[in-house]
Each structure stands twice: as C-alpha cells, then as structure tokens.
C-alpha cells in the first residue's frame, strides 16, 4: 500500500548538529503512528519535516506520493490544507488577539474554501463537533480553560479537512481527566474525517492504547518500530527497555520494589560519531556498538530494530 506520508533517508542538520540522521519513516492513510523518545531525540523535528515545516538537509519527503521538496512554494502552500500540525501548548499556538471565530475561519479563508462571512456556519459546526458552544465565536483564547483551548486548537487543525495531522505532545499540558476527554475527541474526529495521525509523545501508556504502530527515536535516529503491544511487551532495543523501565507505576508496592531494585540509567552523553547513540548508557554495549551504527532491519513481522544484539551472536 502506498504511504500517505513518507520520509526516506532524511537528515536534518542545524549548523554542525545532526537533528535527524538518515531516517526512514512512512505512514499509511487512516493509521495512528506514535513517535516516542526523550527530548532532543528528533521526534518533533521528524514531525515538522514530514510537513516540510522543516526542510530536510538531505533525503526526500513525500506526501500522497509527491516529493514535497521538489514542489514550488505556491504548490506546497496548496498541499498544506491536507497536512496540519497540532501543538502541545494551546496557550502559545493560538493567537491571543484573534477571536475564536477568526481563529477557526482563517484556515478556510487562507485555502480559499470560504470567505470570512461564509465560513461562519462551518465554524459553528466545527465548534459543536469538538464539544464547544457554537456561540463562543466572539470570545478570545484567554477566556477558556486549557482543555477548551486544546479543543479550539484541534478544531483549527482539522477544519480545512486535512488528511494528515501531526500532533506534537497534544496532551502534555493537560490534567489527566482532561487528557482522556481529548483522546476521545481525537478518536471521534479520526473516525468522522478519516484522519491519519502522527502522534509525538513521551507518554508510553497513552501510546500503548491509541497507536497502531510506534516508532522509537534516539539521537536523531530511528531505533525501533512495531505494534505497541508487541514492542512494549518484548522491546528489541535496550533503549526501548530503558524507556519502559522509567514509566511510573501507579501501585505503591510495585513502585517501591522497582525503585529499590532497578539500576540507575546513566544520564545521556554524546556518543562517538559512528557509534550507536545509546552506547554511553547501554548496559549491553559491545565493541561493535562503538565502531558502527547498526542498521534498522526487520526482526519479525511488522517489527524493525537497529541494535547489534539482534544481529550478531554474542
């Protein structure tokens, strides 16, 4: 099946710093794929690169089979209607000086789908769909709670009818009970509008339950991919194991037992240039791990990992 969105051999460098190194990543229509990893792993950069909000230094980025890096600016702007971004902080991502009505109408006007006047009924309909009172159009973002603001940001992201939505930590700023409500809303919108989600998150338990596939990133590289139920049950990369071991357990006895027994994970430090980025922290590192970065290879049906442990017998 052709991918809706696809990055092939993508690298992004900021000055001398490699934010992404040779990343392959593809999403099919209707899928929810989660990208997880610590801050600085490149997950947000990959999300922005998929939408060409961040141009790659090398490699190609395709959307519906078209190479976005080869498109003229005007054509790219037209494609933007079909690929949208959703951010963590609805305080920062909404324009404080625009009313809610203007905030939601703007994408329709920008993409030539409506005028400020004819957008009104669609704005009202969208507000109702995200669980807000359609009568709030003349109000400003500061008049809403964090959860309501995230609903507004979601409405803005999907109102122009995108195919792909990249959501960068859309729940992190929200209370736990509000998170559940927003997850329900995202699922309902996906069903109603046949959306494809790339869900960037550090919250493994949430990812476990909403994503059909999970991609684990580390040091700008893709290190593991697969269905979350399998990846989290039998992680093939020691880094994925370390992430899982750090997930808080809401059970006092189990949490205490783990705190007493689990080995400390060393703080992240830079690895040698060609080494696996996990080498400085890896409990299972071998000489080859410092000599060369293992390739991302199929290790089982629907599963890939980039670790020498899966390839070279000890």
């Amino acid at each position: 099946m052709a991918a809706l969105s696809e990055a092939s051999g993508v690298s992004v460098r900021y000055g001398g710093v490699a934010a992404l190194t040779d990343v392959d990543f593809a999403v099919s229509a209707g899928e929810t794929v989660a990208i997880i990893g610590e801050s600085g792993c490149g997950k947000s950069t990959l999300g922005r690169t998929l939408l060409l909000l961040q141009p790659p230094t090398s490699g190609t980025v395709r959307f519906r089979g078209e190479d976005l890096t080869a498109l003229p600016a005007r054509a790219l702007r037209q494609r933007r209607r079909f690929m949208q971004m959703m951010f963590q902080d609805p305080y920062a991502s909404l324009n404080a000086r625009m009313t809610i009505g203007e905030t939601l109408a703007e994408p329709l006007v920008v993409h030539g789908l409506a005028t400020w006047r004819t957008a009104r009924p669609r704005v009202a309909q969208m507000l109702a769909r995200v669980g807000l009172d359609p009568g709030v159009t003349s109000r400003y973002p500061h008049e809403f709670s964090g959860g309501q603001r995230q609903r507004i940001a979601i409405a803005r992201a999907v109102i122009a009818g995108p195919d792909l939505v990249v959501a960068d930590e859309p729940l992190s700023a929200l209370d736990i009970t509000v998170q559940g409500q927003i997850l329900d809303l995202l699922a309902a919108l996906q069903a109603a509008q046949n959306l494809t989600y790339v869900f960037i998150s550090h919250d493994l338990p949430v990812v476990r339950h909403i994503a059909g596939r999970v991609a684990v990133m580390l040091g700008g590289r893709m290190v593991e991919q697969g269905p979350p139920a399998e990846v989290f049950a039998t992680p093939a990369h020691p880094y994925t194991q370390a992430l899982l071991a750090a997930v808080p357990i809401p059970d006092p006895a189990l949490a205490r037992a783990r705190m007493a027994t689990a080995a400390a994970l060393p703080a992240a430090t830079p690895a040698p240039p060609n080494a696996c980025p996990f080498v400085p922290r890896c409990p299972a590192a071998r000489p080859i791990c410092t000599e060369s970065m293992p390739p991302l290879r199929d290790i089982a049906a629907h599963r890939r990992a980039a670790c020498w442990l899966n390839e070279v017998p000890a």
Binding site: I176, G180, L183, D203, P205, H209
Partner: peptide, 14 residues
Amino acid sequence: SLPRLDQGRGRVLA
C-alpha cells in the same frame, strides 16, 4: 482515568 501499560486506556471522567 490513568492509562496503564499493563491495563486499559483508562476511563474518561466527563
């Protein structure tokens, strides 16, 4: 409402 690795997604409090 807590999502858990070993259990369900959690119940939603409306």
